[in-house]
Design a protein around this nucleic acid. Sequence first.
DNA 1: TACTCACAG
DNA 2: GGCTGTGAGTA
Length: 624
Amino acid sequence: MALLKFRKESKFKYRNLLDLNDSKKAFNSPLSVICHIDLNAFFAQCEQLRLGLSDNDPVVCVQWNTLIAVSYAARDYGVTRMDRLEQAKLKCPNLIPAHTAVFKKGEPTWKYVDYVPSPVNHKVSLDPYRREGKKVLNIFRSECDLVEKASVDESFMDLGRLVFSKIMSLFPSFLDNMKSTSDKLPVIDKLPEGLDFKGFMIKKDNEAEEEPEIAGENNIYLVEDWDDLVILIGSMICYDLRKKVEENLGYKTSGGVGRVKTIAKLASGYQKPDQQTIIRNDAIPNFLKHFRLTDFWSLGGKTGTWINENLGGETPISTIREHYSNLEDLTKILDKNAELAEKIYLMVRGEYAAPLEDREAVKSMASNKNFRGNSVSKRDDLIPWIRVFVGELLLRIQDTDEEYNSIIRPLKMTLSVLSSSGVRHSKQCTLTQSPKDYDLLSQMYHSTSLALLKHLEVIWNETTPSQKMFPIINACLSILVFVNLSGINTLDELMPNIRKRRVEDVKTGQIIETEHEFKKVKNETLLEKFINSRERTSPSPEMKFDNIPDTENTDNCRICGDKIDITEWQTHQDFHLAVNLESKINRNFEESYGERLLNSTGRNKKLNKKSNKAQDRNQSKLPF
DNA sequence: TACTCACAG
DNA sequence: GGCTGTGAGTA
């Protein structure tokens, strides 16, 4: 229960509270309220709900024979993520193992299968969890204007505006006496009806006279100033958000509420599952007693270890706080790394206020697969997996398009391969076409990734001739640098050369004869065309596919009649596919953007300017 | 652009 | 441990 016991004068100013209403400033206010919400054992919860099971069913999410998420019901049997499936079954005979969805080798879509998939013929798909995670995120976004997605199953939220408007409605006249924003905030003499902390409270020092510093329902928690009041309101909002997720989607969450991200994050992990923890500013020292420096986000690895070494060994957070009461001392200890020192200095006080990053846009998407033994010992073994990679990436592009009701396309594609000899090479190219149509897109990506593969083989021969490329133990296809083509009026900013050529073509009324162009450069590979069509200032290394050693395995191409080395067969077919594709793409491309393109060539400059502005506004709102 | 390292869940 | 992702840094 909350007990209002305001000090004679608030420590805070009007400005501190007003800042909450500005999403750019709120995080930095001493009255900021950040919450962190985490989906408990998320993948297991997804599987539990998908299979129509209850919280009491000991579900685990399985990948091959390892556990990637363990439900709380299964944890009751002592099952942990470290267990192999067999060990887990011994601990819990009625265990319910749910394998992730998988792609079958050679297939472009994932499925849940009714047998136990093997890593040799399958690739795990985490898509179902991404989709569910997105649903949760959408609920958060529907309530809160600043949400940072920290991972597929956790988010930070800046509750500033929500808290501020709640205060405005609770104390409608509280701004009346304000003369300057640097005035001290008024003293509250009465807590409005219905206001109370929601969740697990960490005690302040002056509340700790009973035994533990944490207490139950009947305890009384002080509201001594505005910082306690905003956290109280924040705890109610956090609770409502979590309930909304549970009611709409069925997922149990844990939450944390505090002044900054690092505190909120530690708090949400403190009581699990289905519980939230509240940290008032004055309770921060007590709360941090439960953690080590390396528990802070970003300090879990070498950096945290290095800091501890410099401090002369593992040092409690409270010791760091008390011993290094001035920043200079800490900076000296930390090898004069002023930035890091300040961060640590603030962190141990719970005052490290990092802004929330409202980046909803994905920066890259990758489809990755580890191969076992010699299962990919030659080029042909990799092809079916490339089909899978392309399929997976395409599904994700479709999802993104749907989510934002836009056409969102990557500008770059990278293929990376790790050979069993330990050598990794990667090759990136620029994608100069991005058809709206998914079949075309898929074919294009397929051709492009095969061309990249071809290039990688050349790279291997040229740079590491002593190390064999095959067998391959890992391959990864990724797409990156996304643009939203829906908002594009002029393609000038997007694809300089392509567009210039097109604009000229449109002006002169010529039809683009892509096939002809292709034939003209028929000694160039598709990849070279992609790369070189962008800019020729830094030519890519020649890909002398002609130089591949002669073999007797040659045949005539049925399309062009050329004699084709058998090792070139696939590439050659891809070339024809690409030629064919190119014309289709262009038709599609012109259909989609042709009119806009015309508008942007100067026929109607005013209109164009206007629409550009509209686009700017649009883009600042749109994630891409 | 290619590659490596660090960190996280 | 396997898988997916981001960001920093280097040449």
